[in-house]
């Protein structure tokens, strides 16, 4: 009979918990420790009950990575990771606004739009539907505000001095609006798919 505190048993439990932690990527450290302590103790109890038969316990145990992801769906991601995703989002939104090239001619706006989209998808994939939705909104909002300011600004300049060197055509405005609306939807849908 193998005792529950045997080194082999502990190593097997720790190996399982390591994979469980990997599945819970993004969850706060304190929460991860609690979940691992709980599941580790339950595994230990099962091993003791099965008289140290590790194979019997681990063959029937849940896939640790899938279990970790399910636990992440319940607890969500930590605040530091949320901030890490949310802080750059508005900057990507501003830098992906096509008319920014009027001020910074070399600005790769398409690249920043791609980065903003990737950030939104990552937020949805790691943090679930609300993290995806909020990140998408944070990227989209500066683009929509920029579009409104540009359209209204050009109108005002034209009215005041009768001439403006800047213009925005309907097609560009439509593309900016459409991509901005799609971003939060993409984030939400990616997150919904993952958390289900």
């Amino acid at each position: 009979m193998m005792a529950a505190n045997d080194a082999t048993t502990n190593a097997a439990i720790e190996d399982y918990l390591k994979k469980l932690r990997r599945g819970m990527f993004g969850v706060s450290g304190r929460r991860k420790r609690d979940v691992c302590d709980e599941i580790g103790a339950d595994l230990e109890a099962r091993i003791t009950l099965s008289q140290g038969n590790l194979n019997a316990v681990f063959l029937t145990a849940a896939d640790p990575i899938a279990l970790g992801k399910a636990m992440r769906a319940v607890h969500g991601i930590s605040w530091w990771l949320r901030l890490l995703l949310w802080i750059p989002a508005p900057f990507f939104g501003i830098l992906s606004f096509p008319l920014i090239s009027a001020f910074v001619p070399a600005a790769p706006t398409t690249l920043f739009l791609v980065l903003g989209t990737l950030l939104t998808i990552s937020a949805g994939a790691v943090g679930g539907r609300f993290a995806g939705l909020i990140t998408g909104i944070l990227v989209a909002l500066p683009r929509i505000i920029g579009l409104i300011i540009t359209v209204v600004g050009i109108e005002m300049i034209q009215e005041l001095i009768g001439y403006s060197g800047w213009s925005i055509d309907g097609g560009t405005a439509f593309v900016i609006l459409l991509t901005s609306i799609l971003l939060p939807i993409i984030g939400f849908l990616v997150g919904k798919r993952v958390s289900l």
């Binding site: 979940v35 302590d37 709980e38 103790a41 109890a45 319940v74 607890h75």
Partner: peptide, 24 residues
């Protein structure tokens, strides 16, 4: 954990048996 989050369940940690891990 979902039921605990909804405050339908609460939990407490208890020391493990024979020096084993603490249980929730």
């Amino acid at each position: 954990h979902r039921l605990e989050k909804k405050k339908l369940l609460s939990s407490e940690w208890q020391e493990g048996v024979n020096g084993g891990r603490r249980r929730k």
